[in-house]
């Protein structure tokens, strides 16, 4: 196939199907005209090459045919995306280093198993990093898709800008912390899922690890939602009605998760005793675990009450309304 045909095809295959034939036909004709204009008779290969070079690489030409503002993550979101990604990756690397150290102490690999152990850890880190990155891209792509038109809204009224009080503002550091902390827990709990439970000496048996593992997905969801909330806060820079409600919904969900876990731990008292934990210690442990959700619930109620009280005192509505 001649060079012009190959060039035109390379451009056309990068375009939507419905455009292809027309563009191919037009470029073929345009290149033919250009060649006729500079060469008498049959053009040599070098002359065709020179013409195509002037036209530009197929990728560039094809890109000019496409709409100009197609983004997975656009310029407005990109800086935040970069911040979040670098923070997440730094945390993952730090965790991996700490985790490798811990693992080395807890279960030192012996002899020929060292290579397998190292490979296992590295693939674990790779998987975690990859899923973390995929998750971040997904969240930002969704933000891009659904929060895009805000900046192009011409009917916006400066008088409707929310009167954010200091208490409503969310600092960048605060939001990033709110992303990093749950992420640390997420990584820690999942990387070391086999180490959580009640260890009984001297047998070294790990009890209740099954309860922990069974409920880990519920905890993952709660932590993930917290990360999502803080990404939103990082973007808006302040609390709004929807974000506060989202926050309270996450708190409610946490309380439910804690009650579920506490219930299962209480039901496993016999396992603890059977595994060698003294009856009185098991009793105390179960009581403490059962009290925990109540304690958290109390803290949440206090927090909500404080927000509402402050909002009521400062002008009738608890948070600056974004729906106004």
């Amino acid at each position: 196939m001649n060079l012009i045909e190959r060039y035109v095809n390379e451009i056309a295959r990068r375009l939507p199907k419905r455009q292809r034939d027309d563009v191919r036909r037009e470029l073929r004709s345009a290149l033919g005209d250009a060649l006729d204009n500079r060469v008498e008779g049959e053009a040599s290969e070098d002359e065709v090459v020179e013409l195509l070079r002037e036209f530009g690489p197929p990728e560039t030409v094809a890109a000019s045919y496409r709409p100009q503002d197609q983004y997975l993550i656009g310029p407005a979101l990109y800086p935040t995306f970069k911040t979040v990604t670098s923070v997440v990756f730094t945390v993952l690397v730090v965790l991996a280093v700490v985790g490798f150290g811990l693992d080395l102490v807890l279960e030192p690999p012996v002899g020929g198993r060292v290579f397998g152990w190292l490979l296992g850890l590295l693939t674990g880190l790779w998987d975690t990093a990859l899923s973390a990155f995929a998750l971040i891209v997904l969240v930002f792509a969704l933000l891009q898709r659904f929060a895009e038109d805000e900046s192009e809204d011409e009917s916006w009224d400066p008088r409707q800008l929310p009167e954010a009080t200091d208490a409503d503002l969310v600092g960048r550091g605060e939001a990033i912390f709110g992303i990093v902390l749950p992420l640390v827990f997420l990584a820690l709990l999942n990387l070391f899922r086999n180490h959580f439970g009640v260890r009984v000496e001297p047998s070294g048996e790990l009890l209740l690890n099954d309860v922990f593992q069974a409920n880990l997905p519920l905890v993952n969801v709660a932590l993930g939602l917290g990360i999502l909330l803080n990404i939103l806060l990082l973007r808006t820079g302040r609390w709004t009605w929807p974000s506060r409600l989202f926050d309270w919904a996450i708190d409610l969900y946490w309380i439910w998760v804690l009650f579920t876990i506490a219930g299962e731990v209480a039901a496993s008292k016999a396992t603890l005793v059977g595994g060698g934990v003294p009856e009185a210690v098991a009793e105390m442990f179960v009581r403490l675990v059962t009290l925990l959700p109540w304690f958290v619930a109390l803290l949440v109620i206090l927090g909500v009450a404080k927000t509402l009280y402050r909002g009521l005192r400062s002008g009738g509505h608890p948070v600056p309304s974004s729906a106004a």
Partner: peptide, 12 residues
């Protein structure tokens, strides 16, 4: 004009 830019422009 760069022809590689012109034809896409005409189409747009």
């Amino acid at each position: 004009v760069e022809q590689g830019t012109l034809y896409p422009l005409l189409r747009r």
